[in-house]
Design a binder for these strands. Structure first.
Lengths: 343, 343
DNA sequence: TTGAAAGCGCTAACAA
DNA sequence: TTGTTAGCGCTTTCAA
């Protein structure tokens, strides 16, 4: 037998108080049409007087869905949580969800235990859909969610033939454009600091780098490529290594703004002038990146669009889920090279 | 009439499949005692074969609570979300909640609309308790939650006589110790860059600064105090102002590590040597703060303890809520001055 | 040790 | 336009 929360009036009590039936109160609460104005007002008065709040569990159980979506961060490397990219994406998704009336719930999945817990939570019907970010190549969570027939949209892909719905930026194209630009300004010894190479996004950016060089008839020397992990510290270390191996470096493509900031530090520490001496281009373009001096030339990802696209895809899937047909959708958004005056 | 999610077997179907009653399956699912071993195994087999997952809405409705707690960020200034302090607190709370079996749900409350939405969500019974961080002085949310008799714990206080449960660090003491230390090493012209003064935490740190000076018979000159907002950029600007007004500054207490990092930049930009020339002390002490050079001397907050304490308080309140008596609890944790060799 | 049955509070179909 | 009613899937007595 269920135990009631104390002090919480039910629909039934409101109905009694207003002298109407439960159905009518339900209609008023849900703003359904077909209620006489006077009745509606009487019900609303009763609701106010009793301090009625609908029980969401009962509502879900009766078939109305959870009215919430989860945004899952599966990021074992915890430092990345503090990156501006994360907060900007969260903001963007929050904005995109604002007028759907759904709650956005961020959850962290750092271990298998947490993965199981979240899966139970999601499959238990507490959310209507799941947004996933920072997905690494081998992560099984998207498939588990898909198997449970939960509407799911990834930010980025796990690989070139991702099947689960995703929204991604054109990382390859962005990197290619950036390096082409560098070549166009006469730079020749161009290095790159990659992201973690178990992430497709990092592989794409590296591929773009390679393609631009190939297009110019140049080879991407192994020793000009240093792997980082998107953090500033990794950028600094990678840059230090690169300078040592190639004192003649005159340009660098970094896998993120943060990495680029680290690279700048290492360059300055080594007495190199930036950007006259060495041009540095980062990926992403945040207002927050003001901390880098000089301001970076960057490949900008359309973050607001990414958020909107993810939410759009998710809503479409949710609608389909009601009829239990599913179709994956894939969106790749253009990036844009943003040149700073000093570079 | 409620509409079922497709493909989701119910308790009843599991019971039929295993040839037992619903009650027995429920007992097995919830690991309750009093089930014969052979029966338990038969049920578990049925569960596995059918891929049964309990419907959490039904479970909540039947009185078992939501098994989730919300962590709410009410931070209008979005940039702060990217601060290490946030991510570290989230990590700490995640760890503290790990073995309670509850889901941690982060939610953002940036506007009144979002405040209302969240309140409906929480009062609707989707969470068993609420943790609040970054609460500004006038924020009504804690009172609204308290009124709804939802177990609630704040990180920090809104004012000196906060009544809602909270866990806070000894900010006044920490700042006092820091400034006393500076005085002890012979510094005399000591400035401070505060946090946003509509937050009690910032007021406390300023008070500690004042107290230490007073103790030494010195006056806290108005012109030695510059207000910031915990961001790096504000630290840089504040420091620039301070140097202009007081070229003889030889020490600074900053309201956060991030602010201190900004101050360092301004100082270096002005050609001052740090820390020999000017000693800078920040609040908070993150591994992430490696980006500051030289490493800062800091007042360390016991983040892991804060998370544990918040969860402990919340669990206590949740237990009480079941018997509908309430008592607020207040915990203030010690801070620690961490000296770096170079300072 | 187990099964049966009474709710938990709501939505939506159906009658009136 | 409104009231009545049959579930939604689970937990938890109460009997057996």
């Amino acid at each position: 037998m269920g135990r009631r929360r104390p002090d919480t009036p039910t629909l039934e009590e409101v109905a009694a108080h207003a002298g109407v039936g439960r159905g009518t109160v339900s209609r008023v609460v849900n703003n359904a049409a077909g209620v006489k104005d006077s009745t509606r007002q009487a019900v609303q008065r009763a609701i106010a007087e009793l301090g009625y709040v609908p029980n969401l569990a009962a509502r879900s159980l009766a078939g109305r869905g959870a009215d919430a979506v989860a945004l899952v961060m599966t990021e074992p490397d915890w430092r990345l949580f503090a990156e501006p990219f994360f907060s900007e994406i969260v903001r963007s998704l929050g904005d995109a969800l604002a007028d759907t009336g759904m709650q956005l719930l961020l959850t962290l999945v750092r271990s298998d235990a947490e993965r199981r817990r979240f899966l139970e939570y999601a499959r238990g019907g507490r959310v209507d859909g799941v947004l996933l970010m920072s997905v690494h190549a081998g992560d099984p969570l998207p498939d588990m969610l898909a198997e449970a027939r939960l509407p799911t949209v990834l930010l980025g892909r796990r690989s070139g033939d991702e099947h689960v719905s995703y929204v991604d930026a054109d990382n390859t194209g962005g990197a290619r454009n950036a390096v082409s630009h560098l070549l166009g300004t006469g730079r020749r010894t161009i290095a790159t600091i990659t992201g973690p190479l178990d992430m497709y996004v990092a592989q794409c950016r590296l591929r773009g780098y390679r393609e631009a060089l190939a297009q110019a008839g140049l080879d991407a020397e192994r020793s000009l490529i240093a792997e980082g992990d998107f953090t500033e510290e990794s950028g600094r270390r990678a840059m230090a290594r690169l300078i040592e191996r190639h004192p003649d470096i005159d340009a660098v493509l970094a896998a993120s703004d943060t990495t680029a900031a680290g690279a700048l530090k290492a360059l300055r520490g080594a007495g190199r002038r930036v950007p006259q001496d060495v041009a540095v281009i980062g990926f992403d373009d945040f207002p927050l990146a003001e901390r880098t001096e000089p301001r970076l030339t960057t490949v900008r990802q359309p973050l607001a669009e990414i958020g909107r696209a993810m939410v759009r895809l998710l809503l479409e899937e949710m609608e389909e889920a009601a009829e239990s047909s599913i179709a994956w959708r894939h969106v790749v958004l253009r990036t844009e090279l943003v040149l700073r005056e000093s570079a």
